[in-house]
């Protein structure tokens, strides 16, 4: 019952935001600034995590296939698991953890310090002023971050496969490219696009509805990362089913 009411309020919030965005000019300069901020915040951790997920995909792919004599398939494993699933999910998690929590806490602080009320009294729409640039910014930056993550984990798994596991590099690439096609990159970017929508709206929602008092900001920040990461994971499952079902080697 409580969750249902919360969901209803979220719907109302999204509708308010949509109307505000549609009836105001797009804040171009501030959106680009946000995109830059979100990218800078999330990129270092994303590079590190992607690189080490790539190394381990190669190791575990090798563990799985080598006993059967199928070590050549490591490239395929990396393509299916890494490119299609882990890269978009890693991007979603890292951006939710870094940029999403920052959105939630910044907006929550503005709420409890009456800065959002001040915007209203100054006749400046706070949904447009605070959310629209973050929304455009995250949508601009998530697809390229996904491509960067895919590239990083592919390179690191290639290096581990060839230098450490002694696999044939040409074979790795052959299986890799047989399994993935350029469309997969597009699909991953579509995933990332929807993850961006979720992360931004959920984080801003919790920020806007922050309770005052010492725990308000912390609670809003926590809820934002939990709810947006879980929602992205669920959506990832649904979208993989829709986008990739039946499309293997």
């Amino acid at each position: 019952m409580n969750a249902l009411a919360e969901f209803g309020r979220f719907g109302l919030f999204v509708a308010t935001f949509a109307r505000a965005s549609a009836t105001h000019p797009p804040p171009v300069r501030r959106s680009i600034e946000e995109a830059y901020r979100i990218g800078v915040l999330s990129l270092p951790i994303l590079l590190i995590i992607s690189a080490f997920v790539g190394t381990n995909l190669a190791l575990q792919g090798y563990n799985a296939f080598a006993p059967l004599g199928g070590q050549r398939l490591v490239g395929m494993f990396v393509a299916l698991a890494g490119v299609r699933e882990l890269a978009p999910m890693m991007v979603a998690s890292m951006v939710a953890a870094k940029a999403g929590t920052e959105m939630a806490s910044q907006i929550a602080v503005m709420r409890i310090r009456e800065q959002i009320d001040a915007l209203e009294v100054m006749a400046i729409n706070p949904h447009w002023f605070l959310i629209t640039p973050r929304f455009i910014g995250i949508l601009l930056v998530l697809p390229p971050l996904t491509v960067i993550s895919i590239f990083t984990l592919t390179v690191s798994s290639y290096l581990v496969s060839t230098l450490q596991l002694g696999l044939n590099g040409a074979e790795f690439l052959a299986y890799f490219t047989d399994t993935t096609e350029p469309m997969d990159l597009v699909y991953c970017m579509i995933k990332a696009f929807f993850f961006g929508i979720i992360i931004c709206l959920v984080s801003c929602f919790y920020g806007f509805n922050s309770k005052s008092g010492p725990n308000g900001v912390g609670e809003a920040t926590n809820a934002s990362v939990v709810v947006s990461a879980v929602s992205c994971a669920l959506l990832n499952y649904l979208m993989s089913e829709i986008l990739f079902s039946g499309r293997g080697l």
Partner: peptide, 16 residues
């Protein structure tokens, strides 16, 4: 109406 009003909030409500 809001365009005819100014308001000073308790803590100032300045943008940090």
């Amino acid at each position: 109406v809001r365009k005819r009003f100014g308001m000073l909030f308790q803590g100032g409500a300045l943008f940090d």
